[in-house]
Computed example of a mutant assay.
Amino acid sequence: MDANQQTRANPFGMDADCENCPELCATRDQVVHGYGDVGADFLFVGESPGEGADRTGVPFTGDERGEALQHVLGLLGLNNSLPSEDEPELENAFVTYLARCRDPERPPTDEEIRTCEPYLNAEIRKINPEILVPVGERALAEIATEYTTTPAEKFDVTEDHATTVRGRGFEIVPMADPLDASDAERDAFVDHFLSLMDRDYRQTKGRRGR
C-alpha cells in the first residue's frame, strides 16, 4: 500500500451516509465505497454491491461473486488473503462499483449510476491506475462510454473478455462476471493479465512506498 495510506476501506473518506438516491437508502444496509490500495496500478469496477458487500461494506466480498473475484485477484498476486475474507489484503489493486448502494430486487437505474459517477470519477482520478477492469457488461458499457472513443454498443463483455482495449488515458481489460465465467474464461483472464503485469509500471508511476 501507499506509505501514507491509513486504511483500505473507503480510503478517501467519501460520504458514508449518502442520501442522494432515496429509493436505495430504503433498501441498502450501507453505502459501499471503494476499497484497496490507493497507489494501485489496477482498478476493478463492478456494477453495484451484492448481498455480501452490502453486509461487509467492502466491494466484492461476502458472497459467491465476491469470492470468485477475490480468487482471481489471489491468482494474480493482488490479494494476500483467502478469497472468503471480508477485508482482503489487497496490494496494487483497488475494487469499487458504479453504484454504491444495493436494491435486492433490481439493478441500479441509469440515473442512480449517474448520481454515483462523481464518486467513481474521484477514485479514478486520485488513484490514476494504469489499467481499468470493468467487471461485467454494465460496467464495461459505462467505462467504455467514459474512457474510449468507441460507442458502448460495440463492446461485448463475452467477446472482449481478457483482451486489452486502448482507452483515453488508461488501458481497459474487460472481465466477464466472475461468478458466471467458466474455468477456461477465468484462466484466459489470468494469463492475459499476468502478461500485462510483466511490465514495470512502478518506474513510470513513481509510487511512494513501493
Rank of each mutant, 00 (worst) to 15 (best):
M14T: 03
M197C: 03
K205Y: 15
G34I: 03
A181W: 13
A53F: 06
E19A: 12
E123G: 03
A176C: 08
A26L: 10
D103H: 15
G62E: 03
T163G: 04
R8C: 06
E123A: 09
E153T: 04
D103N: 15
D183M: 06
Y201I: 05
K154F: 09
E85T: 05
G209R: 04
E87R: 09
I131A: 03
A9V: 12
D29R: 14
D41C: 05
T7R: 08
E146L: 11
E87W: 02
E142W: 15
T109D: 12
G13N: 07
A68L: 08
M197K: 15
L78W: 01
F193D: 12
V157Q: 06
E105I: 00
E89N: 10
R100H: 10
E171F: 11
M14Q: 15
T109P: 06
F60W: 11
L194H: 08
Q203E: 14
N128W: 08
S81G: 12
E64L: 11
E159G: 04
R138M: 10
I124S: 05
I124E: 05
A176R: 14
F170M: 01
D160E: 04
G74S: 12
V95P: 03
Q70W: 06
D160T: 02
I127M: 06
R65K: 09
E87D: 08
A188G: 13
F60T: 00
A188F: 01
L196W: 01
S84G: 08
H71R: 08
N128T: 09
A181C: 11
Q30N: 07
N4K: 04
M175H: 08
T149R: 15
S81C: 10
S84N: 10
Y35A: 04
G13H: 04
D54E: 13
R125G: 02
D183Q: 12
F189L: 12
A122E: 15
V157K: 05
L24K: 12
E142T: 00
S81Y: 04
F42R: 13
C21Y: 06
A141S: 08
D15G: 14
P108T: 01
Y201L: 10
G52I: 00
D86M: 03
D15M: 13
Y97H: 14
L69A: 05
S195M: 07
R102I: 00
A176L: 13
C18L: 13
E146D: 09
P118T: 13
T204R: 15
D198F: 11
L196K: 14
